[in-house]
Nucleic acid binder design. Structure first.
Lengths: 191, 191
DNA sequence: TATTAATTAGTACCAGGTGCTAAAAATAGT
DNA sequence: ACTATTTTTAGCACCTGGTACTAATTAATA
C-alpha cells in the first residue's frame, strides 16, 4: 500500500466539505454518513485539524465561520453527491427563495457559478486551488424550488494547471455550462 | 416573607439581561458574577426558562451564522458606491475571513464573480435582468482584509440585450475582469 | 508472508450541563 | 422565642460530545 489509500483521502476531503457546509454535524452523525466508526472520524478530524463540535458551534456563533482548516477547499456550494478526486464529481443545489431575484423567482447567476466553481476546485487533487479563467454560459433560467445537478470533469492537466468542464442540469435540461482553468497551488494531498 | 424575595427577583432580572447580552456565559461564570452557587443559577435559569449553554450557542449560531451558508441573500454583493443607471456603476467589497480559502487566505473566486455580476445587473435599467454569457478572468489573487473596487460600464445595448464590462481592482491593480451579456427581462424602471 | 497502513475498540477523563433528593440557612409571622 | 416558609446549597447519578491514550484487529501490498 502506498503512503495513504485513495479511499481515506477521499473521505478526508468529503469530511472537510461536509463540516464546512454544516458545522452542526457531530462525529456520531459523520460516522453514520461515511459508514465508519466514530474513532475513525475523530482521527480524520485530527489530521484535518478540524476542532470539535462545541468549538465549531462557538466559532459559528461568534461569526467567524471558519477557523483553521487545513485540507478543506472551503465550503462547497451545493451538496456533494459523488467525488472521484482527480477525475470528476457531482453536486446538487436546492434553489431556495433567498437565492432568487425577488420579482421573478429566478436563480441568481452567481449561485450557479459558485456551485460549478466550488465543484471544479473540489475535483482537483490539491490542498487548495484557484480559478484562473472561466468561460461561462447561462443556458436556461432556473426557478425557485428546482434542483440543480452539476457535473464536473477534468478535461486536461498539465502540471498544476487543470481544465475542468462543468455542466449543470435541471430535470435533464442543460441550464449552465462552464469551462474553468484551475491552478493547484499546493502539493497533492497526502494527508 | 412574601412569596418571593426582592433580592431574588432582582437577580433574576439581572441574570436575564446578562445572558441576553452574552449568551456565552456558563452557569459557573454567572455563579461568580452574582456570588451565589451554581445550583442557584440553575434554578434561576429554570424559572426564567433560559436554555443551557450549549443550546444558547446553537441558537446564536443558527440565528446569525447560518448553517448552510452560500452567498449573500441581498440583491447586490458588495456595497454600492455609485450608480448611474443605464451607464455605469461602482461597488466595493470587503474581504472577510469567511470568504477566503482557509489555508491561504485567498478570496474565493465566486465572490469576485458575484460582486461583478450583481453590479452588472444593477446598472441595467430594468426591474430584473439575467446573465446570459460571461467571460471571466481572474488576474491576481485577492487576500483577506483587502477591499475590492468593481467598476461596471455598459458597452452596448440592443433591445433587451446589454454588454457590460466589469473590472475589479485592489489598490489600483486589476484583479478581475469580466464581460457579461445580460438580458433585461422586465420593463424599464422609471428612475 | 511479513510489513505497513488503516480502522476499530476500550479505557479514563473532561465540561457543562439535567434531574432528583435532602439538608442548611435566611426571613418572616405570630 | 418558636414556627413556618422561602431560598439557597450540597450531593449524587446520569447525559452528550467530546480528548487523549493504548491496544487489538483488519486490510492491502510489496
Amino acid at each position: 500500500m502506498s503512503r495513504e489509500s485513495a479511499s481515506k483521502i477521499e473521505r478526508l476531503r468529503c469530511l472537510a466539505m461536509y463540516l464546512d457546509s454544516d458545522p452542526f454535524l457531530t462525529d456520531e452523525d459523520l460516522a453514520q454518513i461515511f459508514n465508519v466508526s466514530v474513532q475513525t472520524i475523530r482521527l480524520d478530524r485530527a489530521v484535518l485539524k478540524i476542532p470539535e463540535h462545541r468549538q465549531r458551534l462557538k466559532n459559528v456563533a461568534m461569526g467567524m465561520g471558519a477557523p483553521l482548516r487545513t485540507l478543506s477547499g472551503g465550503e462547497i456550494v451545493g451538496e456533494l453527491l459523488d467525488l472521484d478526486v482527480g477525475r470528476n464529481g457531482t453536486s446538487i443545489l436546492d434553489v431556495t427563495p433567498e437565492m432568487t431575484l425577488s420579482k421573478i423567482r429566478v436563480l441568481r447567476g452567481h449561485h450557479l457559478f459558485a456551485q460549478a466553481n466550488s465543484l471544479a476546485v473540489a475535483v482537483i487533487n490539491a490542498e487548495a486551488a484557484l480559478t484562473g479563467i472561466a468561460r461561462v454560459s447561462f443556458k436556461q433560467p432556473v426557478y425557485c424550488g428546482e434542483k440543480v445537478l452539476a457535473k464536473a470533469v477534468i478535461k486536461s492537466n498539465k502540471g498544476n494547471k487543470y481544465m475542468v468542464k462543468v455542466v449543470s442540469y435541471v430535470k435533464g435540461e442543460v441550464v449552465f455550462q462552464a469551462k474553468f482553468i484551475v491552478f493547484a497551488i499546493a502539493e497533492e494531498v497526502p494527508q
